[in-house]
């Protein structure tokens, strides 16, 4: 799972690999990431993306997809 901005800083890396069972959702992947990164434990509702498009936490992920989690955006 790709991480950006404060999440990336908290994890100390740009992406984390976690194991999830087949049929897992984006939200379940995020749960695993939070387990690995104590500083992210309080982040219950990140923005999530699948294959470079915003996705909801209940989206089922599959092998080979590019998934990402990040805080509210602040470009401009």
């Amino acid at each position: 799972m790709l991480l950006f901005a404060r999440y990336r800083e908290a994890a100390g890396r740009a992406a984390l690999e976690v194991d999830v069972p087949a049929g897992a959702t984006l939200g379940q992947v995020w749960e695993r990431v939070r387990e690995q990164v104590p500083a992210l434990r309080g982040e219950e509702r990140p923005l999530l993306a699948c294959d470079r498009a915003y996705s909801s936490a209940d989206r089922v992920v599959s092998e080979g997809q590019e998934i990402a989690a990040f805080p509210p955006v602040s470009g401009g």
Binding site: F4, A5, R6, E9, L47, A49, A68, F70, P71, P72, V73, S74, G75, G76
Partner: peptide, 24 residues
């Protein structure tokens, strides 16, 4: 763009820095 684009701003101050989250 400000509402949707996955881009983040970090402000650097004289004594530190902070990520900005959301349109402030």
């Amino acid at each position: 763009l400000k509402a949707m684009a996955p881009i983040w701003k970090r402000e650097h101050y004289e004594d530190g820095a902070a990520w900005i989250e959301g349109c402030t």
